[in-house]
């Protein structure tokens, strides 16, 4: 059974100036363990597709199954729990929480899940931070004291800490130089080899080469 499956999914954003059809009858399947790139021009609906895959957004019509769960019948709390436990988000702008230190950023999703912090959480966060190549002395820094590449590594650690099945990355290297970007890509490949299903939005064909398969989208339609 595919880990992500879209059946005739349409997403319409109603706007005063007229409805925007961000996804138009999209059907697709992604198998567990795949590394998929999502490519297309600006405004074609890539982020929208990724958000629906991540249960952050719900389709206007059609059915979406994530990790076996049918999105259309879930309420907000259930969708939130799905994101928390089974999906890791990686953003173009890193999106670390400025109030928290590096290690606290990584601990945070674990605390949400286990409802308690403590030494076990910190230990797990440190493990994951080591795995993405961050040194101990950075752990207590605030996120804005780090370089872009370092921040994206922290964001990946945060996405990984609850050991989700799916990683969704929206232009994860979009704000990084080529060298730092390929470091991040190596990390994603490594995570994919460790068993994570990865869907990555990118404009850059060189980055797309790291993936197994490329899905192309234009004006909300897969091509």
């Amino acid at each position: 059974m595919p880990i992500i499956s879209f059946k005739d999914v349409t997403k319409i954003y109603p706007l005063p100036a007229g409805d925007v059809r961000a996804l138009n009858h999209v059907s697709l399947e992604i198998e567990a363990g795949e590394f998929v790139s999502l490519m297309g021009p600006s405004g074609s609906g890539k982020t929208t597709l990724l958000n629906v895959m991540g249960s952050l957004d719900v389709p206007t019509s059609g059915e979406v199954y994530i990790n076996g769960a049918r999105i259309s019948v879930m309420d907000d709390d259930e969708l939130t729990h799905l994101r928390r436990d089974h999906i890791g988000f990686i953003f173009q702008h890193f999106n670390l929480i400025p109030l928290l230190s590096v290690v606290e950023n990584v601990e945070y999703p674990m605390i949400l899940k286990t409802k308690k912090g403590g030494r076990a959480c910190t230990k797990r966060a440190a493990e994951v931070l080591h795995a993405v190549g961050l040194e101990d002395e950075l752990f207590t820094h605030k996120s804005n004291e780090l370089s872009g590449g370092q921040q994206q590594r922290v964001a990946i650690a945060r996405a990984l800490v609850n050991d989700p099945a799916i990683l969704l990355a929206d232009e994860p290297t979009g704000n990084l130089d080529t060298k730092t970007g390929s470091g991040i890509m190596d990390l994603l490949v490594q995570m994919n080899e460790a068993g994570k299903t990865i869907v990555m939005v990118t404009h850059d064909p060189r980055m797309a080469e790291y993936s197994h398969r490329i899905i192309r989208i234009e004006d909300g339609v897969l091509i």
């Binding site: 994101r83 945070y108 999703p109 949400l112």
Partner: peptide, 12 residues
Amino acid sequence: EIGILRSIGTLR
């Protein structure tokens, strides 16, 4: 910030 918190699994 609230958007980030919600996207990584914080309940309403």
